[in-house]
Amino acid sequence: MNDDRHKNTPRGQLELGLGEQINALISASHALNVKTAARFDPSIQPAGFHIIRWLYSYGPTSATMLAESTAMDRSSVSRLVKQLELLGYVKREASPDDRRGILLSLTELGRQKTIDALKEKEFVFYEHISRWDDEQLENFIGMLRDFNGFDHK
């Protein structure tokens, strides 16, 4: 809401506080992603690790889908994938559905290094929630799902 009068209401103050906390989470997550990328391989850019992380989470995909899903332009994805292939983290293979199509996926080395790098990142987040009971954690997950526009399970 762009109404400045709203900022002076209790609800407006709560919304500003929420914005501050979301910004803090995004900033901390970004800093942790950069640190995790350096742990994975200091020679690659964080954007390269973003590709690695996407492939780890979602599995084999085309370069076009990877570019769309990571909000990167096709030429950047192509350049980064080439570097990741040369380093032995990503491989290309024929699509089982369309032999002319090419799918990108992680190699076993890429997969194992991703797991190792993510352990540190996960530890930081798990440390933050370690004092919560299961109900608090379930509520937090539910609220995040709602906030992110996912159906509540």
Results as ranks from 00 to 15, higher is better:
7 K>F: 03
109 L>H: 01
123 F>C: 05
7 K>C: 04
137 L>M: 12
153 K>E: 10
75 S>W: 06
137 L>T: 13
14 L>K: 07
38 A>V: 09
29 S>W: 02
7 K>L: 07
19 G>C: 12
44 I>T: 00
98 D>E: 06
9 T>S: 07
82 K>S: 12
99 R>D: 11
111 R>S: 12
108 E>Q: 04
135 E>V: 08
17 G>H: 14
14 L>Y: 08
116 D>W: 01
147 F>D: 05
68 E>Q: 13
22 I>S: 13
84 L>F: 05
46 P>N: 07
13 Q>P: 02
30 H>Q: 11
56 Y>D: 15
127 E>N: 09
46 P>T: 06
24 A>D: 11
27 S>L: 13
65 M>G: 10
51 I>N: 02
70 T>C: 05
32 L>P: 02
57 S>G: 12
89 Y>R: 02
1 M>Q: 08
144 L>T: 11
26 I>R: 11
125 F>G: 00
99 R>H: 11
21 Q>C: 10
82 K>E: 13
121 K>E: 06
109 L>M: 08
5 R>L: 03
65 M>Q: 15
135 E>W: 02
84 L>I: 03
117 A>Q: 05
139 N>A: 10
3 D>I: 01
29 S>Y: 05
20 E>K: 15
111 R>V: 02
71 A>K: 10
131 R>A: 14
116 D>A: 14
31 A>R: 09
91 K>P: 03
80 L>I: 13
20 E>Q: 14
136 Q>L: 10
54 W>V: 06
121 K>I: 03
96 P>Y: 05
121 K>P: 00
112 Q>A: 09
110 G>F: 02
130 S>G: 04
116 D>I: 08
61 T>L: 01
48 G>V: 01
59 G>T: 09
88 G>E: 10
125 F>S: 06
142 G>V: 04
96 P>L: 04
92 R>N: 05
92 R>I: 06
126 Y>A: 12
50 H>V: 04
16 L>F: 09
150 F>P: 05
2 N>H: 13
131 R>N: 06
23 N>L: 14
114 T>K: 02
143 M>T: 15
144 L>D: 02
63 A>F: 03
133 D>T: 03
118 L>N: 12
28 A>R: 12
1 M>G: 07
145 R>F: 03
50 H>L: 08
134 D>M: 04
93 E>N: 03
44 I>W: 00
113 K>D: 04
58 Y>M: 15
96 P>A: 10
47 A>H: 07
61 T>E: 11
32 L>C: 03
19 G>Y: 10
